[in-house]
Design a protein around this nucleic acid. Sequence first.
DNA 1: AGCACGCCGACT
DNA 2: GTCGGCGTGCTC
Length: 844
Amino acid sequence: MPKDLFLPHSKPDKFCEVCNTMSTDLYADVILPLPLGDQFTYRVPPEFQASIKVGIRVIVQFGARKFFSALVYRLHTNMPVGSFDIKDIDAVLDQEPIVTQAQLILWEWLVDYYCCTLGEVYKAALPSALKLESQTKISFNPHYDMPVDLSGEEEALLLMLQGHGQANIQDINRFIGKRSAFSTLKILLEKNAILVEEKVEENYRPKTAPFIFLHANVLTESAIAQTLESLKKARKQLTLFEFFLSETLYHAEPKASMEKKELLERSQSGEGILRALIDKNILRTEEIEIGRLDFSHDQEPVIFDLNEAQEVALEQIGQQLRGLKPVLLHGITSSGKTEIYIKLIEEQLAKGNQVLYLVPEIGLTTQLITRMKRAFGDRAGIYHSKFNDAERVEIWFNTLHDKEQSFQLVLGARSAVFLPFRKLGLIIVDEEHENSYKQFDPAPRYHARDVAVVLGQIHHAPVILGTATPSFESYFNAKTGKYALVELTERYKNISLPEMVIADVREATRRKQMKSLLTPELFEQINTALANDEQVILFQNRRGFAPYLQCATCGWIPKCRHCDVSLTYHKHRGAMICHYCGHTESLSGKCGECHSEEIRTRGFGTEKIEEELSLLFPEAKVARMDLDTTRAKKGYERLIYQFENKQIDILVGTQMVTKGLDFDNVSVVGILNADQLLNYPDFRSYERSFQLITQVSGRAGRKNKQGRVVVQTTQPKHPVLHEVVANNFTQLFNRQMAERKLFKYPPYFRLVKIVIKHKNQERLNLAASQLATLLRKNFGFNILGPEYPVISRIQNWFQKEIWVKLERDSKLGQSKKQIMGAVSQIKSMPNHGNLIIHADVDPM
DNA sequence: AGCACGCCGACT
DNA sequence: GTCGGCGTGCTC
């Protein structure tokens, strides 16, 4: 983008016939936080022409009544052509850009690559407190005499408004208790009884705290002396006042004020004593803005020493990074990748550069945060979705502005790629194979790892992708020279890799050796571990008690009434719950079909395992870690803490237990049902099985002692399991690559998944087949579907999918344009109004 | 995405 | 006769 777009244009001047002067018309193309394709052009009125810049927010009216905070994308003097009135910009919100030029370049890339709009990216990128939207405010018209011809509802509403002063639409809907109070409001508006206005409210409020200052009366030496004299009889007040002076005026570095809380605490005075001094006009209080960000750190920064293998890897990375290719760091579990990162980060921070450290959503554990805080103290900040909005705004500005106290290292989940970095020196993507880097819904459906690579290119910052189990895409890129590859094959601190055992569930069942859900192998291992005071982690990728219930007489299975899935039985809550929409039904105990009372549980989830274990090992403390036990705010941290402190002997969990946790007393890891992973109907299921089993196995092993992993399966001869046992990633990769090539799957081909949804099944079928036909004209055999996905209905929306396979070296941009063209053609056909169609590029 | 406008069925 | 359901089109 040319540089002059930053500046208001001074040409071409033209003569204004109205005001008889030379005038300059300046226009701004703005991005609205809406999923609309094009930008909208507004006129920049003269009073804003000097201050407007690309990347600042402005308030504009959009449509008949709504106001939005839009982002200035382009400034120019070309009057837009068209038969519409150009509206003026109403207000300018920022003095300096809050979105950088580099970010806009990234946004444009996202729009092209992920087939979305700038509005959608704008929405995803900015903390919501920075995206204002007007709210309709309704108030009582004070110049209105209460008439007689009002209905009961109208009168009640008016009285409410009179009492409250102002209300928004949601309040009124709640008050009236109907779905829409719009008709009542319309009548009242016609009768001139109410006033309606649109207000844009700033959501972000800086946090303030009371600070204590010297009162204006006491600013001279003599006044202070006099005051001290006058306080002789009030000894507590004198103590407080003297303390205040010693901390501010008489301090080595004098300050004007002191925070009230700190003053009271450190002088050990009470509220009342301070109050007295304020009443006497000796001190005064004032609200001062303070930040919400935590700059505290407990310990002095510690930097570790690396072992030989790590030093070699660090050296290799250093060499490779100079080539500005992304580096894939393939290091087996516990090989000490984090220490290498710390060294690399340290180097960048010393240069005054910023570092982005991406972790999967779930990987933002207290363990990692503690480690980074210990290494980098208050230079490290955290950004993820659990942060409240005010904090996110502050991190945004902290990243953007070079302040006295600012974070140089940002640890963040996927949305951290959108932060406004000034001077990015390095990007680390940890656990790059993790699926949670991909955003499903809403658009932009981006993969943070891939966005990070592009972000690195824009900033000329090196990118490191680290993992023990590379995604096939990344490994392929490394093998074909798009990425550089660095491998670490030794475990840190000489912890040996765990011994892997494959336990045959079918054989054990036949011999009647199963102890509940455990094979004799796993049962023995757990017993031994408990006897040695060691801990156990069990993995089952399914929460709840039983995935479904079934009538033993007729085979009936309870299903969700809104979705096409069976209800999962949650024993603890005594309910059957849909894991797709949350629909909950209480347990009737009777078959919905034949009314038989013989209802059986089928399969097992974490809850059932927890219960069975408590019966099998009554002495052991068993805990469960899944979505249900970690939903509460500190639930996850509490479990980790308890496990670390050995208050838990056996931890049962879903995927959560596989992520980046390091415990040093776990000797046994059990995978309860590997079949479920292997048989998952997806072309990536073997890749994922390998990743999950390897990752969870990595939790086993202690210093000087080999850990054990038991994998329970009915397919003990399955090749993937043997590759896991041998830790033979390469063999699995090569075998799978041949298949991927043959069936035109990634990484040889790129996939675009098109999802079509409609509440009406016939209309969905029609639209989907029309779209597929249209796409086949361009892509022929590379179109799959339309087909129902595994779950064909979610929350009463039926859905179908069409898959497009694009050749890797084909003109991607052009193909995507063709796809989106076909989509909009289908959408604009009559009767296709309530269709939802979206494209998911590189779906997971 | 919202929201207004416009056209057809089930109600006072 | 009207209320309100949804299908359609537009927003600088």
